[in-house]
Design a protein around this nucleic acid. Structure first.
Lengths: 216, 216
DNA sequence: TAAAATATTTAGACTGATCTAAATTTATTA
DNA sequence: TAATAAATTTAGATCAGTCTAAATATTTTA
């Protein structure tokens, strides 16, 4: 088995890879709130174990075993988040830190039974897809609300940012997963958007429109 | 917060204290499968943090903050064991190792919600009492079957040994928590005991009779 | 394309947890 | 109670993960 730290590095590299392909030392350091020198040290160890492809100064990618581990951590994280919200009545902005701990519990049997217990959910409370027992998952094609034009519609299906502040705001204005929305008007000047949500008009800033994802 | 290792030391000291009062370095080393020298090092750290009372060569006891932490770990361990057996359908001999990991998840909120979710169970799957949110618990007066005389009765309520092998054996012969038993006969020579369990006679060895606890 | 800025790596050190081997203290027993 | 045995502690080392400061490589830009 790997240490918590190694698992956190693999997970960080996985998430960063989704956006940029190859991942830099500094990106990892920022994402883990650590120093570039520490990252270099760890990259050597992970490369030694053949969990990443690493050549000095050139950034890293995950190997296939490394990616498998990263996905299993993400599966655990998201299933635990689902459990916390659906069974233990946590709010969606409260679960991240606890799930960060729970995701390192090693037993695969445990997580598969938890998955059974909850009826194999496909998405976590933030709309992120939950990999199945073999690591497969498909993400629905999401786009930010800011990509819609006036009169277009969609269903809130995910978020690009997971900070408690952002999630609490969304909860407050009832822009939660599953809500149907319609774009009424887009402000030319500041790109704020007026939406119809549950028959009420609400206005959201460009930032929010960028970080709130919809399907259809 | 404390490290996993510190928590494991406190828990071990707590369990050992129940039997012997003051706990020796070697007892701790044996219980944690580590070396006496390592234990000495850790005892210094725990004493420094005022979690134990420690004077060189004299053994240790927990301070009141140390005991509080130990009990909170035990609460977590036993609640998770209950969860694993009652909700995820683990067998009672399969839960120990997973619970050893889960007991170190730090969130008190999590464990209190888990407790709510399960309806505040009083005993774990092995009959051990679960401390409540404030750390209080009462243990019913248990005695081993070997303390009974012929014709006395009791209810299986706990085990003195938690090894999977022992638990599997008990499961096989249906000597599980809650079962009513009656002592039919005690063999003078080897102290094996013949019991009536669910209208069937079964014979158990002295060892088993010593490690299986009953109430009433 | 050479200089400046930025990113990355190396060197050397620290902390927590562990170990072996040696020294010391306590307990046992002859 | 003195010698022996057992338990415990100390000394010194190692490993994982981290850090700062210095060195080196890469990228940007003038």
């Amino acid at each position: 088995m790997n240490t918590f730290t190694e698992e956190n590095y693999l997970k960080a590299i996985y998430h960063l890879s989704l956006q940029s392909g190859s991942v830099s030392t500094n990106q990892i350091a920022a994402s883990l709130s650590t120093k570039a020198a520490s990252v270099t040290d760890m990259l050597k160890k992970l490369a030694e174990k053949e969990l990443i492809n690493y050549t000095k100064y050139q950034g890293v990618t995950l190997t296939s075993p490394g990616e498998k581990i990263a996905i299993s951590i993400i599966r655990k994280h998201r299933l635990w988040e689902y459990f916390l919200v659906e069974k233990l009545n946590f709010k969606w902005d409260e679960v991240h830190d606890v799930a960060e701990e729970l995701e390192h519990i090693s037993s695969k049997d445990l997580i598969d039974r938890l998955d059974d217990f909850m009826g194999h959910p496909k998405y976590d409370p933030h709309g992120d897809p939950i990999p199945d027992s073999s690591g497969k998952f498909k993400t629905h094609e999401l786009k930010p609300i800011s990509a819609l034009a006036a009169n277009e519609i969609g269903v809130v299906s995910g978020v690009r940012e997971h900070s408690p502040a952002f999630l609490q705001y969304l909860e407050k204005v009832q822009l939660i997963i599953g809500r149907k929305i319609k774009v009424i008007e887009i402000n030319d000047y500041d790109h704020s958007v007026i939406l119809l949500v549950e028959d009420k008009k609400i206005q959201i800033s460009r930032e929010v429109a960028n970080n709130l994802l919809i399907t259809r």
